[in-house]
Nucleic acid binder design. Sequence first.
DNA 1: CTGAAAGCGCTTACAG
DNA 2: CTGAAAGCGCTTACAG
Lengths: 342, 342
Amino acid sequence: MPPQNPSAWITAADVARKAGVSRSAVSRTFTEGASVSPETRDKVQRAAEALGYQVNMLARGVIQRQSNLVGVVVKGFDDPFLQSLLGPITHQLALRSLAPLLMDASEPAQLAKSLRHLLQYRIAGVILTSGTPPIQLAKEYLRLRVPVAMINRAPDLEGVDVVNSDHFEGGAVAARALLASGARKLVFLSSDMATYSARLRGEGFVQTLAPAVQAGEVVLRNIHASGATYAGGFDATRALLADAQTRPDGVFCANDVLACGLVDGARQFFGLRAPEDLQVIGFDDIPMAGLSAYSLTTLRQDVNALAQSAVACLFERMAEPDMPGRMLQLPVTLVTRASSRS
Amino acid sequence: MPPQNPSAWITAADVARKAGVSRSAVSRTFTEGASVSPETRDKVQRAAEALGYQVNMLARGVIQRQSNLVGVVVKGFDDPFLQSLLGPITHQLALRSLAPLLMDASEPAQLAKSLRHLLQYRIAGVILTSGTPPIQLAKEYLRLRVPVAMINRAPDLEGVDVVNSDHFEGGAVAARALLASGARKLVFLSSDMATYSARLRGEGFVQTLAPAVQAGEVVLRNIHASGATYAGGFDATRALLADAQTRPDGVFCANDVLACGLVDGARQFFGLRAPEDLQVIGFDDIPMAGLSAYSLTTLRQDVNALAQSAVACLFERMAEPDMPGRMLQLPVTLVTRASSRS
DNA sequence: CTGAAAGCGCTTACAG
DNA sequence: CTGAAAGCGCTTACAG
C-alpha cells in the first residue's frame, strides 16, 4: 500500500521506482513514437495506473518550448454564429490532443495584453475568428512563429492560413433565388460597420444583380442598419418600409440575426409578412433561423467544416511553421424556408 | 542592437544580462509582492520591454506546482443559457489573471479522459456548469485538492462551492404571478430528464400552488417534454393543448427555450396565442426571450453575478483549499413581458 | 531498447 | 534588497 496522500501529485520518478525502470523509460512510454519495448511500456503503464500518474504538461512544455494549448480568440460571446463555432473548434482540437485557451477580444483596451497573455503559455497556435480586429497584433505571433489560422477574415496577412465560407457566392445565390421567385425591388441590408464577410456577401449579391439592374428590370438599394444585430434589423425596418412606394419585395440580409430583426420589425411596425409582402433571405443558418417563428431562408455556413479546416491548417503549420499561407474557401448551402418563395 | 531573432523567445537570463542584474532579480520583478528595489525593478522592466520578454508560465507552473489555468467544463455548446455564462466567466477569470481552459463534457465516453486531461495542466481550479454530470469524477479533483466550483448544481459534494440561482423562489414567483393574473388551469412543463435546477423550479411552483389546489380553486398538471429544448416545447403542445376541455390557461416552463417552443407550437398547431389564450412564463431570460416574436415573461438569472460568485469562491479556495464548501443562492427577477398578463 | 546526465526556464530558501 | 545555488518535473542527445 502506498503511503497516504504523499503529495497527491505523482511524478515520473515515482512511477519509475515502482516499475523498476529509469525515468527515461517512463518518459518514453508517454511520448508518442518513442522507442520503448512492449515489456517496459507495460510495466510502466501498470505502475502509472496504480499510482494515478498524469504527465505534467507544464514541465513537458518547458522542454519542448511549446504547450498543447491553442488560443481561441473571439470578439464577445454574444454572436450566435460565433457561439456555434466554439463547439466544433473545441472538438477538432481535442481530436489532436490540443485544448482551447479562450480569450475575449471585445475590449480593445485589454486586447494587446490578452494576446500577449496567450504567449506566456507558449501556445501551439492561435485561431482568430471573424470580428477580431488585431491585424497588427497578429504580426507578433508571426514574428514568434506561432501558427495562426483565421476563420472568415480577409487574407491580408502573409504566412497565416485563412478559412472562409464562400460569402461572395452566397450573395450570388441569394440574388438568383430572389430573382427567380419574382422579386424586383431588392435591398441588401448590412451593418454600417460591415465585416469583411458581410462586404463580400453584398458584393456577390450586387454584382449578380448588375445586369438586371442595368436593364432596368430590377431596382437595388443598399441599406445600413446600426449594427449587425437583431435590434439593428428591427430598427432598420422604419427606414426600409415606411415609404410604400419604394418598399422592397425582396431583402437579402448580411446575417440571420439582422434578418430576424427585420422580419419582426416588418410585422410589428407595418403588419408586413414574409414572404407574402416581402421575401427575406439571411446568412449563417443559426439555430434561430430554423424556428417556426422565423422559418428563415438562409445560406448555411458549415461550421463543422470551418472548424475542421482551420484546426487542420493550424496542425500542419505546427509541423512546418514557415509554409506559405493558404486560403480555403468553403461552399455555403441555400436552405429554403418559408420566408422566401421557391 | 540585439542579434537578429536569436531564438525569438527571450528568457529571464537574457533580461538579467541586459539589465545587469541576477536572474533572481528578474524573477522577483515579475512576481507579485516580491521584494525588489524600485531601481532594480525599473532596470529590469526596461530591459524586458526592449527585448519583448514574456514570463514563461509553463516554467513558473512547474515550480509552483500550479498554473493560472482554470478548467471550464460545459455540456455541449448549444444551450443558450450556458452560452451566456461563458463570457462573464471568462471576464471574471481574466480579472484575476486566470484563463479558461475549455472542456466539453457532452460525450460521456470521453469525459473521464477530458477531465484527466485538465489535470495534466495542473489547473488552478475547475468550474462545472449545470448539465455536467460527473459527480463521481469531481471527486478526483477533490482528492488532488484542486478547487471546484459549481454553478446551478445540487450541493451534493463536500468541499466544493456551489452557486445557484434561487430556482425554488423563481418557481414560487411564477406561481403567484399566474394566480394574480387570473390563471386557474395551470401546467408545469419540464423535460422528462429534468436537471436539478428544473426540479427546484417545479417544486417552488407546485408548493406555492398547493393551498389553492387543495381548496379546489386551481387545477395543476405536470407535463414532460422530450428534452428541455425548443423542439421539446414545440412538440409538447399536442399533448398539452389537444383537449380543449383540459387546456391550461397558464403554463410555467422550466426554461425559456421550452417556453418559446410552446408558444410557437400553440400558435402553429392550435392557433392559440399568449397571453390571450394561455399565459406563458419561462426561466433564464436568454436573448431569445426578449425578441418581439416571443416577448416572453420569464425569471431572469443574473449570469454576471453567477460568474462573479463562482470565480470569487474558486479564487478564495485556491488560497485555502480545505475550507468547508459553501452554498450561495442568488435571487432571480421576474421580467414581465407580453406573454403573460400583469 | 535502455539509463545516467545534462538541460529547459523558472522560483525560492539561503546567506549576505 | 540581492545573487549563487538548488531544485521543480520533465525530455533528449549520448553512450552503451
